[in-house]
Amino acid sequence: MSEFDPHHLKVLLVDDEAFIRSTIRQILMQIGIPKTNVYEAENAMAAINQTLRVRPDLIICDIHMEGYDGFAFVSSLHKAPIPEAATIPVIMLTSDAGAEAVAIAKGLNVAGYLVKPVSIAAVKKSIERALKVTLP
Rank of each mutant, 00 (worst) to 15 (best):
M1D: 10
F4R: 12
D5Y: 08
D5N: 10
D5M: 06
P6A: 12
K10P: 02
V11K: 02
L13D: 00
V14I: 06
D15R: 08
D15W: 11
E17G: 07
E17R: 14
F19E: 07
F19M: 08
S22I: 09
Q26T: 05
Q26W: 02
I27L: 14
L28Y: 01
M29D: 12
M29T: 10
I33A: 01
I33G: 00
K35H: 02
T36A: 03
V38E: 05
Y39M: 06
N43E: 03
A47Y: 00
I48C: 08
Q50G: 00
Q50P: 04
L52N: 10
L52F: 00
R55N: 12
R55W: 09
L58Q: 02
L58H: 01
I59C: 06
I59Y: 05
I63G: 02
H64E: 02
M65I: 05
M65F: 05
E66I: 13
G67D: 12
G67S: 11
D69V: 04
F71D: 02
F71G: 00
A72Y: 00
K79E: 05
A85L: 09
A85S: 15
A86E: 12
A86G: 15
I88R: 01
P89C: 05
I91T: 07
M92P: 08
L93Y: 07
T94G: 02
S95W: 06
G98V: 14
G98Y: 12
E100C: 06
A101K: 09
A101V: 07
A101S: 15
V102E: 14
I104V: 13
A105Y: 14
A111Q: 13
L114M: 09
V115F: 14
K116W: 14
K116N: 13
V118R: 03
S119I: 06
S119G: 14
I120V: 12
A122E: 11
V123Q: 10
V123N: 08
V123H: 11
V123P: 04
S126D: 05
V133G: 06
